[in-house]
C-alpha cells in the first residue's frame, strides 16, 4: 500500500497568508505538495459551510490562513473567522470528526518561512491522524 497522502484545502486571505505563500515561493522554501490553496480576499469571507462541505467531500484537512490579530486588511475579518472556526470545531467534535483537521493560522505577507513550516507541520499532523473518516465511508459506498 502506498503511503497516505492527505489532501489539504487551504483558504487564505489575499493580503497576508496568500502573499506569505507567494513569498515562500519567491524564497524557494520547499514544503509538501499536499496543500491546494483557494484565495479569498479576507478570511471573513469563509462560510462555515465551505469547511463542512470540503470535509464531507473528503478533504483530510482544512488550513485557514489570515492576517495577524490587529493586522486584518478589513479591520476585523480575522476575528470573525476565529469565532466561526471555533464554532465549526465544536460542531465537528460532536459529529465525531477530529477538530484538529481544521487549523487556523495567522501568517503575514512577510512570513514565507512560517507558511512553509505551517504546511509541513499540518501535513505531518494529518498524516498522523490518518484519512478523513468521511472519505473512507464514501469510498466504501
Amino acid at each position: 500500500m502506498t503511503e497516505f497522502e492527505p489532501t489539504i484545502i487551504g483558504f487564505t486571505c489575499n493580503w497576508c497568508t496568500y502573499a506569505g505563500a507567494d513569498l515562500a515561493g519567491t524564497s524557494k522554501i520547499q514544503y509538501p505538495t499536499n496543500i491546494r490553496i483557494i484565495r479569498v480576499m479576507c478570511t471573513g469571507r469563509i462560510e462555515p459551510e465551505f469547511i463542512l462541505d470540503a470535509l464531507r467531500l473528503g478533504a483530510d484537512g482544512i488550513l485557514i490562513g489570515g492576517c495577524h490579530p490587529g493586522d486584518c486588511h478589513y479591520q476585523e475579518g480575522n476575528y470573525k473567522t476565529e469565532l466561526r472556526v471555533r464554532l465549526v470545531k465544536s460542531l465537528l467534535t460532536s459529529l465525531g470528526i477530529e477538530p484538529e483537521r481544521v487549523r487556523l493560522e495567522w501568517i503575514s505577507a512577510s512570513e514565507g518561512q512560517k507558511f512553509a513550516e505551517t504546511v509541513q507541520s499540518f501535513v505531518d499532523e494529518i498524516r498522523e491522524l490518518g484519512p478523513n473518516p468521511l472519505k473512507k465511508n464514501s469510498e466504501l459506498k
Partner: peptide, 24 residues
C-alpha cells in the same frame, strides 16, 4: 469586498461578485 456579510447572512441573500459561494 471582504465578504464578511456574505458569510454571516443567514438567508444566504448576499453574493460577493467574483467570489460567489457557488464559485468557491
Amino acid at each position: 469586498c471582504c465578504g464578511s456579510c456574505v458569510a454571516a447572512c443567514p438567508a444566504r441573500a448576499i453574493t460577493l461578485r467574483g467570489f460567489t459561494s457557488e464559485q468557491i
